[in-house]
Amino acid sequence: MAVVFQKTKGLTDKQTHYCPGCTHGIIHRLVAEVLEELGVLGEAIGVAPVGCSVLAYEYFNCDMQEASHGRAPAVATGIKRVHPDKVVFTYQGDGDLASIGTAEIVHVAHRGEKITTIFVNNAIYGMTGGQMAPTTLIGQRATTAPLGRTVEHSGMPLRVSEMLATINGAAYVERVAVNTPANVRKAKKAIKNAFQCQLDGKGFSIIEVLSTCPTNWGMTPIDALKWLENNMIPYYPIGNLRTPEVEE
């Protein structure tokens, strides 16, 4: 019988703790498949964040370090400076990267650190129970914005990728979504480009992945995917924001 699908070697056999309908699983698989397809799984060193994906070190089948909240880019910097020939990546959520870790993500880009960041944006703090994130949309409810986020109180949601794309050291910046099979395929291509950018020594690369949080959004997985499409993508447009080729 022909094998039509096989789990990537890039993931361990450990069952994940993610909620039903959460898209972290898809994104994990994409990263793992890319590492395997690029033939760098044995050279990869990943850094897990604090947040829902805190246990990512149990799922990626490569050497991993667990960072404190927001500091994954600094930890990755330490690793990459010691092993410039290895493939180093961080996997971070939007609380971790866009709030407490803004200094670290800005400066890893600023230095043009040759690492890859997978930035999972689901517009909310998942692990701690649905608090407002800098990426939470206007009107979106959160446990710390019970009536919905307002501009007056909390400002407009932060578009991290656009901000990072202004930094010279950020060689590859792209926002993708994993709400449809087509978008998942595009996301994988972008993730592969980002790692290739690292392998080519071009600079820092980051892929922002728009993701769902059915549990904290209070929706079914299907509704969550629709909400992503109707609310997140209009504010956080998907597409490439920077590639090495546009550099002179």
Partner: peptide
């Protein structure tokens, strides 16, 4: 070796964490 000026003390010690975890004398 490598010297790097970090963006903050917090980042510096986390770079130490990464480098140490990667086997370096740091």
């Amino acid at each position: 070796g490598v010297f790097l000026q970090a963006e903050s003390e917090v980042a510096a010690i986390n770079m130490v964490y990464g480098a140490s975890g990667a086997g370096a004398r740091v």
